[in-house]
């Protein structure tokens, strides 16, 4: 099935989840390398990769949110304590917000810094703000703060998934894995 059901995730939802998971970790590495590399053509290229991946992630998260709203969401296992349900809902909402806010603040940095940029060397990204040094500095701080928030939230997200699988022995992790969930 392509569409989600109340019991399982469809293939598009899984593909979006794991593609974005891989890209987000690649993005952490690219961002860190680009920021710390000495000024050189390599640094500029690392930034092109980082910014391009960020724009790709922004497009993917948009598709993902739309797809999620158009589909049923698989239910959490019965008997899950109220606080865990609330924590799951809050952390998933926070992840979506951060996945939107990270590329947006990056886009603001790129616009305020006024450095020409073409996504994957293909087409220019329009500016969403005017050149502005003060706003650039602020957006850089926010971008870094959001990165820390995202890293922490992902730690909770991954820790919770592993706990569900290995401690509580439910299918929350397994039903997001490729190939599973066809029994529905």
């Amino acid at each position: 099935m392509l569409r989600n059901t109340r019991e399982s995730w469809g293939a598009p939802a899984k593909l979006l989840h794991w593609t974005m998971a891989a890209l987000v970790f690649a993005q952490f590495a690219l961002g860190w390398l680009a920021a710390s590399w000495r000024l050189s053509p390599t640094k500029l290229n690392l930034f092109v990769w980082h910014k391009s991946t960020g724009i790709l992630l922004l497009a993917l998260v948009t598709v993902r949110i739309v797809w999620r709203l158009l589909n049923p969401t698989p239910a959490l296992p019965a008997g899950l304590p109220r606080w865990e349900r609330a924590a799951a809902r809050a952390s998933h909402l926070l992840l979506y917000l951060l996945l939107v806010a990270m590329p947006l603040t990056g886009w603001i940095i790129n616009s305020t810094a006024n450095i020409p940029f073409r996504v994957f060397w293909l087409f220019p990204l329009p500016d969403i703000t005017a050149p502005d040094k003060a706003l650039e500095e602020l957006a850089k701080k926010v971008h870094l703060g959001l990165f820390i928030a995202l890293a922490l939230t992902l730690t909770v997200h991954i820790g919770a998934a592993l706990r569900h699988h290995f401690v509580k022995h439910n299918d929350i992790l397994a039903r997001m894995l490729p190939g599973k969930g066809r029994r529905a």
Binding site: A113, N114, I115, P131, E136
Partner: peptide, 12 residues
């Protein structure tokens, strides 16, 4: 060059 970062870099 209408960019504080670039204006700084070209002094090098």
């Amino acid at each position: 060059m209408d960019s504080t970062d670039i204006n700084e870099a070209i002094r090098a």
